[in-house]
Nucleic acid binder design. Structure first.
Length: 363
DNA sequence: AATCCGGGGAG
DNA sequence: CTCCCAGGATT
C-alpha cells in the first residue's frame, strides 16, 4: 500500500484491510472483487492483485510463512528492491538498505548527487550510498530513520535544515544548495481526452427498484478489475448525443426493436490520471425491453466492431455477446440494482457521479 | 531505458 | 495550478 502513496493516505486503508482480511490465509482465499473494494480509491490496483497473488504463493508453496530471505522474498509479485529491503530489514533484521523517494532525496542532498533521481542509471548510485551508510546492527531502524528524515525534515520544499540531525554531514547545506537537489528530469505535458459515458437504467418491477448496467474492466491494465459504466473515447468535435446512440448501437448491441430512450445529459466529470486527463460527459438512458418481439440475433463476429483502439478507459474489448440480454450472462457486464451499487469497486470517475446515479431511484 | 500505472495532500 | 509520495511491472 505504501508504494508511491503517502503514509497518511494509507493508514485508514491499512486498518480496514487488516480488519477485513486478518491473515494471509484470508487474503489468499479472498475474492478479487472483495479485495478491490477494500482498495477502491487508493490507486495502483496492480498492487492489490500482486499482493493477493503473493499471498497465494506463500500459502500454497511456503506453508503460509513469509520467507525471511531477501532473494526468496524478492521473487514474489509486487516485491521490488525497495519492498524487499524494507520488509527484510524491519521484520527480520536483515542488513539491506531500503531506497525510496525519501531516501533518494536525502542522499542527493547529503552528497550533492547530480544524477536525476528517477533515471535508471542513477539507481545504483543511490543504492551504493545507502548501502554504505547502513547500520549493520539496526538495519530496520536505519531504514525507517532515513525515510522519516526525508518525510519530516528533508522535505521536497523548504527543508528543515536548521533542525536537521545530519546538518553537519550535508554537502548541499554546506553550499546552501538544498533547493538544487534532488535533480529531476523535465516532465512532459499530458494529453487530454474526451469521453462519453452511458448510464443505462432499467425498471425492475420484481425488485421494486431500478437497475443500471455496469461493466467490469479487464483484469490487467489501467484500473484493472474495477467496475464502471459503459464509456468510450470520442472526437471532441462530434455531437455527444449522437455519439451515445452510436456507442449503444455498436457496443451495447441493443436489440434493434427495443427502446433505448434518448440519452439525457446527467453531468460532466473531469479526472486526471498519471499520464493523461479526461473530460467525461455522462448521459442517462432508459432501457425498456420489448417483450413481445424477439431480439435480432446477431453474429458476434460480424456485428462486433472494435473501437477505441487507443485503449483508453475501455481497453480493447473482447468479443461480446450479440444482445444486451445475452450480456447478462457475460460476467463482464451486469445489471445491478441501484441500491446495491456500493458493493462493487468502482473507478474514481464512476465514483464522482455515483451519488447522482443513486438519486435516479427516487426520481 | 522509457513508459505505464492513481489518487490525494501540500504548497 | 504543480509537485511528488515508504515503486514495480512491462516493453
Amino acid at each position: 500500500m505504501l508504494q508511491q502513496t503517502q503514509v497518511n493516505t494509507v493508514i485508514d486503508y491499512y486498518y480496514r484491510f487488516l480488519s477485513k482480511l486478518p491473515t494471509i490465509y484470508h487474503l489468499a482465499e479472498s475474492e478479487l472483487d472483495d479485495l478491490l473494494k477494500i482498495w477502491e480509491g487508493l490507486g495502483y490496483y496492480a498492487r492489490a492483485r500482486n499482493l493477493r497473488k503473493a499471498a497465494q504463493i506463500v500459502v500454497t508453496e511456503m506453508d503460509g510463512q513469509v520467507p525471511a530471505d531477501y532473494n526468496f522474498f524478492r521473487q514474489l509479485p509486487g516485491v521490488g528492491d525497495y519492498t524487499a529491503a524494507a520488509v527484510q530489514s524491519i521484520a527480520f533484521g536483515q542488513p539491506f538498505a531500503a531506497v525510496d523517494g525519501n531516501v533518494k532525496r536525502v542522499l542527493s542532498r547529503l552528497f550533492r548527487i547530480i544524477e536525476p533521481v528517477n533515471a535508471h542509471k542513477s539507481q545504483q548510485i543511490f543504492q551504493q550510498q545507502a548501502d554504505h551508510l547502513l547500520s549493520a546492527n539496526r538495519p530496520g531502524a536505519y531504514n525507517q530513520a532515513m525515510m522519516e528524515l526525508g518525510a519530516t525534515v528533508c522535505r521536497p520544499k523548504s527543508p528543515g535544515c536548521t533542525i536537521c540531525p545530519v546538518q553537519d554531514f550535508c554537502q548541499a547545506f554546506e553550499k546552501d544548495e538544498q533547493g538544487l537537489f534532488p535533480v529531476r528530469p523535465a516532465k512532459k505535458k499530458i494529453p487530454q481526452y474526451r469521453l462519453i459515458c452511458l448510464v443505462v437504467v432499467k425498471d425492475d418491477a420484481a425488485l421494486a427498484t431500478k437497475s443500471v448496467l455496469i461493466t467490469r474492466r479487464r483484469p490487467d491494465g489501467l484500473l484493472g478489475g474495477l467496475w464502471e459504466f459503459p464509456n468510450r473515447k470520442i472526437d471532441p468535435e462530434t455531437d455527444r448525443i449522437a455519439a451515445c446512440q452510436q456507442f449503444a448501437l455498436e457496443e451495447l448491441e441493443l436489440p434493434r426493436n427495443s427502446d433505448l430512450g434518448t440519452p439525457i445529459f446527467l453531468t460532466q466529470v473531469k479526472h486526471t490520471y498519471t499520464h493523461f486527463r479526461v473530460v467525461v460527459d455522462v448521459f442517462l438512458s432508459y432501457y425498456q425491453p420489448c417483450l413481445t418481439s424477439v431480439p435480432e440475433v446477431l453474429d458476434p463476429e460480424v456485428a462486433y466492431s472494435p473501437s477505441d483502439k487507443d485503449g483508453l478507459l475501455q481497453e480493447d474489448t473482447e468479443l461480446k455477446a450479440a444482445s444486451l440480454i445475452d450480456w447478462c450472462m457475460d460476467e463482464s457486464f451486469r445489471w445491478v440494482a441501484i441500491n446495491q451499487l456500493d458493493q462493487f469497486p468502482f473507478t474514481g470517475v464512476a465514483n464522482k457521479f455515483l451519488p447522482q446515479v443513486r438519486q435516479i431511484n427516487t426520481a
